[in-house]
Each structure stands twice: as C-alpha cells, then as structure tokens.
Design a protein around this nucleic acid. Structure first.
Lengths: 138, 138
DNA sequence: TTGCGTGCAAAGGTTTTGCATGGCA
DNA sequence: TGCCATGCAAAACCTTTGCACGCAA
C-alpha cells in the first residue's frame, strides 16, 4: 500500500539531510520551494503523517499553540533523546542522558507503562536563566 | 490590578470543584451554559490565561492538535503529578510517584535545569494495552 | 466616575478535507 | 489501466483580538 512519489522522496530526503534538528511543516514547504521543487502544503502534511505512523519520523510540539516539529529518526535509538525547553528564554536543549534511561525501567516495572521517548518535552528553567536571570520578562 | 467579576468567580469555582481532573475551555463554556450562567468564550479564555499566569491553574496539552487542559492547583505541591498518556487507548493516568521526584534533582544537579512539573505529559503504552492488546487499532 | 472586564463577531494560525487531476505500478 | 498521490482552495479547529458596552471599585 502506497506508491513511491517524487514529493514523498523530497520530503523524506530533507528530513534525513537535517536529521540533527527538527523541521516544521512550514519550513519544509519553504525549503522545497526555495529549491525550485515546490510541494503543496496538504501533500507535505499527508507525507509527514505517513512517515510518523511508519515510525520513520517523529513529531512533537514544543510550544503550546505553535507548529508541530518533525525530525528524522534513523534506525537507531540514539535519537531518542529528551527535550528540555526553557519556559523563560525559550531555548531548547536536546538532552541525551543515561540517567533518564532509568525512567523507562521504573515506569515499566512499577507502573506497567512502556514509555515512548520520542515525544518527550520537559519544561522548566535552563541553567543560563537560573544563573543570570537574563530575559527576566517573557 | 484586576477587578473581581461574577464570570471570573464562576470559572475559578468550576475548576476548584473539579480539582481532581482537568477541564478544557470548551467544557467550561458548556458546563456554565448548562447551569444557566453562560460566559462568553473569549472571557473564559481570558480568565484562564490570567489564572495560569497567577499560578492558580495549570495548563497543558495532552494531544498534539487538541484543546488545552486546565486544572486547579490548590496551594500545595501534591497536585504536581505527572501525566501518562497511552498512545494506544488514549487513557490518561494521573501519576504521583516519589521516584519521579528524583528527576527534578537530577536535572537540577547535572544539567542545571529547574523542571516545571506542572506541564509534564509522558507518552507511551499503558499496562492494560500492553497486557491485553485490546484496542489494537487506533 | 474611571477603566477594566465582558460579549459578540471576526480574524488568526495550523492542520485537515473535498474534489478533480496527475502519476506510479 | 487502476488506483493512490497531488494540488488547490475551502473548511475545520482552537484560540486571540477589536470594539462598544456594562459593571466593579
């Protein structure tokens, strides 16, 4: 089920190329347009949806009412990092930490819950803001 | 700064009454209308925004593109629980667990990150789904 | 009386859907 | 050839904003 199309390849290729970061649907549209290979918005969303359900790409939302972010997921688990988002300055920290791996084990053992780490965003105040108290206002 | 109004009282009263769960803006509108004390949608949102910024109510989003949830926060910390959301059957588990408290400490010590626990939603598969594999389809 | 809060409707942004057309197998 | 994918535009959805009026202090 599912044909291989030029547009689908372009979208996946872009996510693969920028696998170290995440892209929004809007960014993907813009980048493709800039390359001269425009793809319709609806098509971008439909392809992203498919990639997410296939597990090739992950989707999460960093900010309340803002766009969803999409990121290539390779085949390995090293991309299953956490995101720490500072509610003060807005910085997003991509965190890979062994300690946090234990959360999985704990939730599984004690709560029978099998954590999906691809969508995790933890909110709080980052080290910079805690120290310097810069950007006091939002 | 800020007057005390009938509408504001109704909204906060409702959140207080249902402090053991969360309500969406739409639910709040509907409940007030059902009680014969209709409040405009914009007013509901404006009051919720104020309550959140005052720290009396917390806001988080369980599902990607869905409505935000609002919950009364009392004065104590016992309401700072985590949410576990099953990506299979959709159940939301309100989890209060001492072990998870350690995450705060770890993030603070090793990453200088001061976690805000009021917005946390962890996704995964719940015990029921893992066992019975009921609701296979989404 | 002063000016914040309200309510209605319209606008805002992201994402989805309908439908005719185009392209893969 | 058959059917899925595309693209455009319109719709859907939640939330915010503009503006005139009402109500709290």
């Amino acid at each position: 089920m599912g044909y291989k199309t030029k547009q689908g390849g372009l979208i996946f290729g872009l996510l693969e190329k920028y696998s170290d970061r995440h892209l929004t649907a809007e960014e993907i549209c813009g980048m493709l347009k800039a390359e001269g290979t425009s793809v319709g918005t609806a098509t971008v969303y439909r392809n992203l949806e498919k990639l997410v359900s296939e597990g090739k790409v992950r989707r999460y939302r960093l900010e309340e009412g803002e766009s969803a972010c999409y990121q290539y997921m390779g085949d390995v688990e090293c991309h299953e990092h956490f995101h720490l988002k500072c509610i003060n300055c807005g910085v997003v920290i991509h965190l890979e930490c062994d300690y946090l791996d234990e959360i999985n084990g704990h939730l599984l053992e004690h709560h029978g819950f099998n954590l999906d780490r691809t969508k995790i965003v933890l909110y709080g105040e980052c080290a910079e803001c805690r120290k310097g108290r810069r950007n006091e206002a939002d």
